[in-house]
Design a protein around this nucleic acid. Structure first.
Length: 423
RNA sequence: AGAGAGGUGUCCGAGUGGUUUAAGGAGCACGCUUGGAAAGCGUGUAUACGGCAACGUAUCGGGGGUUCGAAUCCCUUCCUCUCUUCCA
């Protein structure tokens, strides 16, 4: 969430940056400032009247103690008048605050200066590429055929149990998931991240804090009986650990990693892009999250990008890193790098990680602050990234490591899986 | 799921309608004291909003209500503990 004080001081800059994100209503900036002016004015007169009520009430107490009943009754009448004035003020103030809040949450985060202009994924900027394309056998198959052939994943039975997009992993397929999760977590904790295993459902306050509500309401599964949401990413519960918390400056940076299943309704998805494991409603992911000093977040973002890159290199997959353009970025992000691996059999790039700096957008929303050396309270910056999302890594490894006789494994995974080859 | 007891500041803890302007203790910070430390003494020690400031307003788990006045009374909700029940 953007801060009114920032919008007030940087009215034109904010509008310019919102345009990069293709935000449709720049005038909302003015609306918000007007509403905030109105709120201030209302609060000033409310406080003034309330102060009179408070001190008169205290006097009544003193009069009663002295037994001066008559005077007390007279003061009560006067207080009654003030309280009548308070009622409409209170209502108006509550309404203005709701309007202000409703307007504020509509703003996406402002893009970082490095964010390229552009509207669609084609305008993302290639930062670098790495890895080598595999030499596949002549009759190379896509992963949806391979997993059927080797009985690694059963989509049909998953669909029977739940619905489409809920894969059932079997035998070596299931074990491979476990090996990947374990490898990713070990890789992250070795780099200094603390491992968490969070709740897989969150309440509305948590979903709001990280920006899933109200923006992505329809994208989450909602358990209405208890009003809980199934998490779309571990980012939601883990970042919320620090909701309504004032940290010490020395606590920073906080580095967390967590495995979780992720649940996404993916309403409106269709076509070839969603085949097999390319897009599913439930998938596994290991996430990295950091809460850092605002001066450090640019630097930390680069570190996190380098960290994920190292992990991809260890898997021997051809990859590229893209800096997303303003139109392709997420709502809450200030700058995002996407990682894609090349699936040789599908002949297309698959997004496997997205690393973002949210700056103070999430931390302001959830009141995650720290006390600096001077004793001043500041909002921290939050960042997160996938390290990594499993299904497309699964797909890419199965496709890129296929041989005439089976499926090989990257060296790094062999000790985790227990054998040299997957099949 | 049923019954009961609770939720107060960084922590412990007092407080059942009116100098509570949240007692007292601990911790922490600073100062005095000391050769240095400890003890002792003194001062300070939440957040948000408004205000140049003085200061004002709000917050005793959350929300609502009663009252001139609520940490205190009422309703509601969340959470914790104990017992019963159930369960991996």
């Amino acid at each position: 969430m953007l801060q009114v004080s920032f919008l007030r001081q940087n009215r034109d800059l904010a509008k310019k940056k919102l345009a990069i994100k293709h935000f449709a209503q720049p005038d909302l900036v003015d609306t918000v400032i007007d509403l905030d002016d109105e709120r201030k004015q209302l609060q000033a007169s409310f406080d003034e009247t309330q102060a009179k009520v408070n001190s008169a009430s205290k006097e009544i107490g003193a009069m009663m103690a002295k037994g001066d009943k008559e005077k007390a009754e007279a003061t009560k009448t006067a207080v009654g008048e003030w309280k009548k004035q308070l009622e409409p003020l209170k209502e108006k103030m509550a309404q203005v605050e709701i309007d202000l809040q409703n307007a504020l949450v509509q703003f996406p985060n402002l893009p970082h200066d490095l964010v390229p202009l552009g509207k669609s994924p084609e305008e993302n900027v290639l930062v670098r590429e790495g890895g080598v394309l595999p030499k596949l056998p002549a009759d190379a198959e896509a992963h949806w055929d391979l997993i059927k052939k080797y009985n690694l994943v059963d989509f049909e039975t998953g669909a029977k149990i739940t619905g489409s997009g809920f894969p059932l992993y079997i035998g070596k397929g299931a074990k491979f998931q476990r090996a990947l999760v374990q490898y990713f977590l070990d890789f992250n904790t070795a780099a200094g991240y603390t491992e968490y295993l969070p709740p897989f459902m969150v309440n509305a306050a948590s979903a709001f804090a990280t920006g899933q509500l109200p923006d992505k309401e329809g994208q989450m599964y909602h358990a209405t009986e208890d009003d809980f949401y199934l998490i779309p990413t571990a980012e939601v519960p883990v970042t919320n650990i620090f909701r309504d918390v004032v940290l010490k400056e020395t606590d920073l940076p906080l580095q967390m990693t967590a495995y979780s299943p992720c649940f996404r309704r993916e309403a409106g998805s269709f076509g070839k892009e969603v085949r097999g494991l390319n897009r599913v409603h439930q998938f596994e992911k290991v996430e990295i999250i950091q809460i850092v000093h605002p001066d450090k977040s640019d630097e930390v973002l680069n570190e996190m990008v380098a960290h994920v890159e190292k992990l991809l290199v260890s898997l021997g997959l051809p990859y590229r890193i893209l800096r997303l353009c303003g139109g392709d970025m997420g709502f809450a992000s200030a700058i995002t790098y996407d990682f894609e691996v090349y699936s040789a059999a599908q002949e297309r790039w698959l997004e496997v990680s997205s690393v973002s700096n949210f700056e103070s957008y999430q931390t302001y929303r959830m009141k995650c602050r720290f006390k600096d050396a001077a004793g001043k309270i500041q909002f921290a910056h939050s960042l997160n990234g996938s390290s990594l999302a499993l299904p497309r890594i699964f797909a890419a490894i199965v496709e890129n490591y296929q041989t005439e006789v089976g499926i090989a494994l990257p060296k790094a995974l062999q000790p985790y899986f227990g054998t040299e080859n997957l099949i």
